[in-house]
């Protein structure tokens, strides 16, 4: 199912955060949402998850507006991983991951066979099965981030929306997580991920949606959007873009435009 964003306008505290965003995100691909701080990336992701009410415009999944879906049905279709997610109590890791399944069964029913299978698969995929019985408070920041990814994967959503999921991970686990997101897209599901790191975006994304001041500056395939000219204009930096062996763009920021530093 395509995720269609049409003429989306969002006001927060009378400030226009998103100003007429149009895009059609395709399943089976990883779409990276990029842009400078304050461009409206997280707001766009929240609007896609129907967590805020847009002033104008709609987000639709297939033919249906996400805002009009029954919340539980929406939860089965769209998985949302917020930025800097925290867990308020010292829950067992397995119980945290199991929360990804709450919309799949009636509130007081015991987890089904399918629930257990999905939880186990998510634990395996994120390499968190080893500490499934531990309390989440005993984990490092990176381990916790993987558990929270497992939580959203356990829901087996048609669309996975992740807000800056790499922040607290070391390089090895960043690469793992990028692979996991690719794996989700590879089975035909949709992935939209807010990223800050241009290198990561070049490595993982099939499509890039570039935001600036709440508007779409560019949206297209990674090779089309991640050009030195475009990135220089939007981020105000000098970027060297080369291509690696599978023709993916490798974007290395080398300096701020107008800066006297080399």
């Amino acid at each position: 199912m395509e995720l269609t964003i049409s003429n989306l306008r969002v006001m927060l505290d009378r400030r226009c955060v998103l100003d007429g965003v149009d895009a059609v995100l395709r399943p089976g691909r990883v779409t990276a949402i990029l842009g400078p701080n304050g461009a409206g990336k997280s707001t766009l992701l929240k609007a896609m998850a129907a967590l805020l009410v847009p002033g104008e415009g709609t987000v639709s999944l297939g033919t249906r507006a996400v805002a009009a879906l029954d919340p539980r049905e929406r939860a089965r279709l769209i998985g949302y991983l917020p930025q800097e997610a925290r867990v308020h109590w010292d829950l067992r890791v397995r119980d945290v991951v199991a929360l990804g399944r709450v919309a799949h069964r009636s509130p007081f029913a015991a987890p089904s066979h399918a629930d257990h299978a999905a939880i186990d698969a998510a634990l395996r995929l994120t390499a968190t099965a080893d500490f499934a019985e531990r309390g989440i408070a005993t984990l490092s920041g990176g381990e916790r981030a993987r558990v929270l990814l497992a939580r959203v994967l356990a829901g087996e959503p048609a669309w996975l929306l992740a807000d800056e999921p790499l922040a607290s991970l070391d390089p090895a686990h960043q690469l793992d997580l990028l692979d996991q997101l690719r794996a989700v897209a590879a089975v035909g599901r949709g992935v939209a991920v807010v990223l800050h790191d241009l290198l990561h975006a070049g490595r993982i994304a099939d499509d890039v949606l570039l935001l600036q001041h709440g508007r779409v500056v560019a949206y297209g395939s990674t090779a089309q959007v991640l050009t030195a000219e475009m990135l220089g204009r939007v981020f105000d930096i000098a970027v060297r873009v080369s291509h690696d062996f599978d023709q993916r763009p490798v974007c290395v920021p080398i300096g701020r435009i107008g800066s006297s530093l080399p």
Binding site: P71, A75, P82, A85, H88, P107
Partner: peptide, 23 residues
């Protein structure tokens, strides 16, 4: 007693709980 399952989801924060279908 009916609040139990929603309270569990809420331990992941309000946004996540809503994204999990909790009203």
């Amino acid at each position: 007693a009916a609040t139990g399952p929603s309270l569990d989801a809420l331990s992941l924060g309000e946004d996540t709980a809503r994204s999990l279908g909790i009203r």
